[in-house]
Write a protein that binds this DNA or RNA. Sequence first.
DNA 1: CGAGGGTTTGAAGTGCATCAAATAGTGTGG
DNA 2: CCACACTATTTGATGCACTTCAAACCCTCG
Lengths: 246, 246
Amino acid sequence: MVQAAAAHNTIEKTLKNTLLFRGCDQSFMQKLCEQGMVRRYQKGSLILFKDDHAERFYIITAGWVKLFRETIDGVQAVVDVLTTGDVFGEMPIFSDDGKHIHNAEAAEATETISLPSHLLAEEIKKNPSLSMNMMQFMAHKQKVQEQQIEHLAIQSAPQRIGCFLLRLITAEKRQGRNELSVSLPYDKTLIAAKLGMQPETFSRALKKLRESTDIDVDGSIIHIRDLNKLSGFSCAACSAEFPCKA
Amino acid sequence: MVQAAAAHNTIEKTLKNTLLFRGCDQSFMQKLCEQGMVRRYQKGSLILFKDDHAERFYIITAGWVKLFRETIDGVQAVVDVLTTGDVFGEMPIFSDDGKHIHNAEAAEATETISLPSHLLAEEIKKNPSLSMNMMQFMAHKQKVQEQQIEHLAIQSAPQRIGCFLLRLITAEKRQGRNELSVSLPYDKTLIAAKLGMQPETFSRALKKLRESTDIDVDGSIIHIRDLNKLSGFSCAACSAEFPCKA
DNA sequence: CGAGGGTTTGAAGTGCATCAAATAGTGTGG
DNA sequence: CCACACTATTTGATGCACTTCAAACCCTCG
C-alpha cells in the first residue's frame, strides 16, 4: 500500500509536469493518475509491439526507448530514440485500426508511466486546450522529422554525428548544465542506426569529425573544445538557423 | 462580378470536399468561403517564403507544389511535393513565432485557394471535430514521414524509385483509374531531389530498375508489366505491409 | 531555327557498406 | 579478485553505390 501510494505520487508529479497535459482540469488528471501504471524495463526488454492493439500509451520518466520496425529481409529500421519526458504509443488514437505502428524497446534501463489510450482519446475530443497541446506536440515532431529527412538526404556521416552532438549539448543546457562535455546516452551502434549509418561507419566518421573539429573522444565521453568549429562543420549543410538550436 | 461569383462557387465546392473541414458547421464554412482567394501560378513561380509571417494557408486545387529550404552552402533540400487536395502553410498556426518554415514553389502550373490562417487557428480552438480532423491529418503525415526516413536510411536508389512508382499507381487507383501505366507528374530532377538523390543517379537507377523489374520507360511514361515483380523488388527493404499500400 | 532547360551518358573519384578479424569493455561465476 | 564469455567497438581490406564534373543529347517553345 505504501508503495502504491508512493507510485501514485510520482505519477501525479510527472503528469503535472508533462507539457501535453498543461491546462487540463483536475477531474481528468485525477482519472489519469488513478489509471497510471509505473513500470521499469531493463535494457533490451520490449515495451510494446507493432500491430498490437493500442490499449495504453507511455510517458518516459527515466532512461531511453528505441522505436523501430523491421523489414521483410530482417533489417531493423530505427524510427526514433526517446527519453525522459517524451511520449510514445499515442499515435494509434488517430488511426482507425488503433494498432501500434512500431515496436518499442528499452535501449537503456527505463521507467515509464503508461496510461489508457481511451482516456486520452475521449478527453481530446472534448477538451480544446488538450487538443491544442497535442497539435503543438505533433507539429513540433513533424518539424524535427523534416529536419531529419533533410539531414539524411544531404549531410555526410561526420556532419550528422556533429549535428547529433550539438543537439545533445542543447538538451543538456536546457537541463541547466552548461558543460562542453557530453556522454553518449546510449550505444554507439544505436546512435549509428538513428543517424542512418552502419556502426563501422559511425566509428570512422567520428574519427573524421575529431580531426576536423578538435573534439576529444574518450570512449563514450566527448569533449568539445570549440563549439563554433563544430557547428561550422556540421551546420553548413543544414537549412536550419545557424548555428543550430535544435 | 460574374467571375468572382464563379470563383466563389469553386471555393465552396473545394472546401466542402476537403477532408480537413469535414463536419464543420455552415457559419465557419461561410466565413472561409468569403475570405478564400483563388490564385494560379505558372511553373517555377514562388508561392510563399520561409520566415515570412504566415497570414494564409493554402489548399491545392490543381498542379504540383514543391516545399523546400536552402542550406548555407546553397543546396536546396526538398521537403515535400504536394498536389490537388493537399494543404500547406498551415503549420505556423501551432508555433509561437507564426512564420512559414519552408518556401513553396509551383513545380507545375498550379492553382490554389488560400485562406486566412487566423480563421483556422480560432476555429480549431473551439471546434473539437475540426481539431480532430487536423490531428488525424497530422498523424497521417507523420506516418508518411517516418516511412520516408526509413526509406532514405535503408533503401537503395532503385528501390526508392520503385516505391515512388508504386505510390503513384495507388494514388491513381484512388482516383478510379486502374492502369498499369503512369506518367511522371513532374520533372525527373525534382523526383530525384524528393527521393534524396542526384538527377544523374536517378537516371541510372531508373535504368537498373528497368532491368530488374521489366518496367517500360518511355520518356516520362512508365509502363509496369508485372506489379508483383516491382513490389517484390522495392518492398523487400521496407517495413510496411507487403506489398505496400501507401 | 536557335536557345535553354531537362535528361542522359561517360569517366573518375569519394563515401559508405560489407566482411573479417582484432581489441576493448562488461558482467558473470568461480 | 581473476578468468571467461559475451558484447560493443574499432580496424583493415575490398567492392559497390552514389556523386561530381563534363559533355552530349533531346525537347519544347519562342
